[in-house]
């Protein structure tokens, strides 16, 4: 019984985290057709910025609850700044390149950003763990659970639903959908594609940064955290179907529960539970669960 509760909660918690780190990746791919390897670096930048900002905030002796405001601010400001800088500074010049070449370009960006992070923050670990302990834990049928972890589930749901509403119910969002369908026709119809692309990339980057910021209080922020995240995020979006937001949610749930179940029931399979799910899904539905079909080019 306790084990069931634990699997349910852990799966939900891990899925929420996976969704947070993967949703930006799928958004950017969906609109811009860029499979962004630098996503992992954005996540790392978020985590480091959060740790630094919280360190400064606490050493100023300000009230602890304000830390969450700081985290929100860091996520938005850093995410937008980094996203716009990369989009305007580099990617803008490269649109229209082959999709696969774009992967290589973002891989190059990833290498550059990884070292930049190291040059800025060094190799020692950073901590920002106070927010994680702030809400304490609650007892769920005998299992102590951090309230922070449950709030992260809430955050994932709010962001997911918010994104969906934005894409389907607002003007900008609908324009985005139009650009997804056909970039050239949209441009011909007067859609400001440049603006749409910049916005998408900034929002997608901010989402990666949110993932990093929200995770920072739980971990030791060390070099290499970005690399670990990329592969997980890729697995999630590949399962769900590249470019689909509901797909990312489903993919996160598949991967999250696969891992939680294996940790509790068969720990020896934990390492490749996620890859196994990915391989299975791809074998049945090659382009992921929620993929669009493409027209063939002639």
């Amino acid at each position: 019984m306790l084990k069931t509760i634990a699997i349910l909660l852990d799966g939900l918690n891990y899925s929420a985290w996976l969704f947070l780190v993967a949703v930006g990746l799928t958004l950017i791919y969906g609109v811009m057709r860029i499979l962004n390897i630098a996503h992992g670096a954005f996540y790392a930048i978020g985590a480091y910025s959060c740790a630094t900002a919280l360190g400064l905030y606490y050493s100023a002796g300000l009230p602890e609850a304000g830390a969450f405001l700081v985290m929100a601010l860091v996520a938005v400001v850093v995410g937008m700044l980094v996203g716009l800088a990369i989009e305007r500074g580099v990617l803008r010049h490269l649109y229209g390149q082959d999709e696969v070449l774009m992967v290589l370009i973002t891989y190059a960006l990833f290498l550059i950003l990884e070292d930049s992070v190291k040059l800025i923050w060094g190799v020692e670990s950073y901590f920002a763990f106070k927010p994680y302990a702030y809400f304490g834990f609650i007892d769920v049928g005998g299992l102590p659970y951090q309230v922070y972890d449950l709030l992260m589930v809430g955050l994932a749901v709010v962001l997911g639903v918010g994104l969906w509403i934005w894409l389907t119910r607002t003007r900008t969002g609908r324009l985005m959908t139009a650009v997804v369908a056909d970039r050239e026709i949209s441009a011909a119809m007067g859609v400001n594609v440049t603006f749409i692309f910049a916005t998408t990339f900034a929002v997608g980057t901010a989402l990666a940064v949110v993932g990093g910021v929200a995770t920072a209080p739980k971990i030791a922020v060390t070099p290499g955290i970005g690399v670990e995240v990329i592969i997980l995020a890729f697995a999630v979006v590949v399962i769900g179907g590249l470019g689909s937001i509901p797909g990312a949610a489903i993919g996160a749930l598949f991967a999250g529960y696969a891992r939680a179940a294996s940790v509790h029931l068969a720990p020896e399979f934990e390492l490749f539970a996620i890859y196994a799910v990915m391989a299975l899904v791809l074998a049945i539905r090659p382009h992921g669960l929620f993929a669009r079909t493409d027209g063939r080019k002639i």
Binding site: A6, L143, I219, G224, E228, V263, P267, L271
Partner: peptide, 22 residues
């Protein structure tokens, strides 16, 4: 009663801690 082997550098041990607790 339990032996967990999470991936090195996983960084996130929520499920493992739950398992150790239960």
């Amino acid at each position: 009663v339990d032996k967990q082997f999470p991936k090195i550098f996983a960084g996130e041990y929520g499920a493992e801690v739950s398992s150790l607790l239960t």
